[in-house]
Write a protein that binds this DNA or RNA. Structure first.
Length: 346
DNA sequence: AACCCGTGGAT
DNA sequence: TATCCAAGGGT
């Protein structure tokens, strides 16, 4: 089975079926603004198009170009990112914008190598921006491309070990011209037709050249190594209120939810930590608990509340009525919601 | 190289 | 309900 006609067939399909997205140029058109391409690529890392849309709209409204973003206040940017997840992306986003402003005269490098050196831009994103924003030939391999290629060639080797093989196969398919459209076409194909479950082979432009389809069970690809079980942890979050304000803290710059505002909370461990790590001695009352699932562990978070008159507790007092503006990550937004529902009764 | 890092929607 | 998974990068 030959895949010689894969790129032309895919591009013809893309000319008709390309998704219209706010950060994307129409098929065959000149490339979109590199700033918007870059911003969308960072937001789309491990994140669905539907989740990104409203964030992309708010960011481009608030910071219309890389020069504006480079001058953003870090706290404001982190708050704007709140809820989107993987918060290291937001910290790197700002660092990258500042590097472009300071070291590159306000313009993104137009080569993979130049892009790859910037914070938050790895192998995939460097290739994607080079191809999509600058028309460079680059081998763009994301999760969609891995799936499409694994099926097209019926690759039996399991991920993640198969990555180098899949990259080499993607290289074979990638055309010298319209590389940006080709990359986006592969991703659209993966998102709409060559989906993880129940691929719509009957309407696929690559149907006749797909070895995976020929096996009769294309959904079996890509083969994946089994994953480790997700451990359960328990913790306590503390809602301490004083004169209509609640105590928040800024989490350390690195690590889980790094750099984000949060409710004070003790250790998150296999055993219930009780009131360990409480920000003050107080008459803590139980407000119930919330469940939250992170990438590599699940959390059962008890929420406790107290009132205080103490004025010397370290942290940031935030008006309860304006808590939405604080930009709490989702786990703490859930905890805060639970605490407030109980405080209003009291 | 393995592990860490969020969230919400679909099945 | 549990599992999967989405335009990955950093260390």
């Amino acid at each position: 089975m030959s895949v010689d006609g894969a790129a032309p067939a895919l591009l013809s399909w893309y000319d008709v079926h390309a998704r219209a997205l706010p950060w994307r140029a129409p098929p065959g058109a000149p490339p979109a603004d590199p700033y918007r391409v870059w911003l969308s690529e960072i937001m789309l890392q491990q994140t669905t198009v539907a989740a990104v849309r409203p964030y992309f709209a708010r960011f481009t409204e608030r910071w219309p170009d890389v020069a504006a973003l480079a001058t953003a206040d870090e706290g404001e940017l982190m708050a704007a990112w709140a809820g989107l997840g993987y918060y290291a992306r937001a910290r790197n986003l700002l660092a990258c914008a500042r590097a472009v402003a300071k070291d590159h005269g306000g313009r993104f490098p137009d080569s993979e190598q130049g892009l790859r050196a910037l914070p938050g831009i790895g192998r995939y994103t460097a290739a994607a921006v080079a191809a999509i924003a600058f028309g460079r030939r680059a081998v763009v391999v994301d999760g969609n491309v891995e799936r499409v290629v694994a099926r097209l060639f019926a690759v039996e080797e399991a991920l993640p070990a198969a990555r180098p093989r899949l990259h080499a196969l993607a290289d074979r398919l990638t055309p010298a011209r319209r590389t940006g459209d080709f990359a986006q076409a592969m991703m659209d194909l993966g998102a709409t037709i060559c989906t993880p479950r129940q691929p719509a082979c009957a309407i696929c432009p690559l149907m006749t050249m797909c070895a995976g389809r020929a096996t009769g069970d294309p959904a079996r690809f890509p083969v994946k190594a089994p994953k480790a079980a997700r451990p359960q942890r328990r913790g306590t979050a503390f809602w301490l209120e004083r004169d209509g304000e609640v105590l928040l803290c800024r989490r350390p710059a690195r690590g889980l939810l790094g750099g984000m505002l949060a409710l004070p909370s003790g250790p998150w461990t296999a055993d219930d930590p009780g009131l360990a790590g409480a920000p003050a001695e107080a008459g803590w009352r139980d407000a119930g608990h919330i469940a939250h699932v992170f990438t590599h562990f699940a959390l059962d978070l008890r929420v406790v509340t107290a009132l205080t008159g103490e004025r010397t507790i370290a942290g940031q007092w935030w008006p309860v009525e304006r808590l939405a503006e604080a930009g709490l990550p989702t786990v703490f937004a859930k905890a805060a919601e639970r605490a407030r529902s109980l405080m209003e009764i009291a």
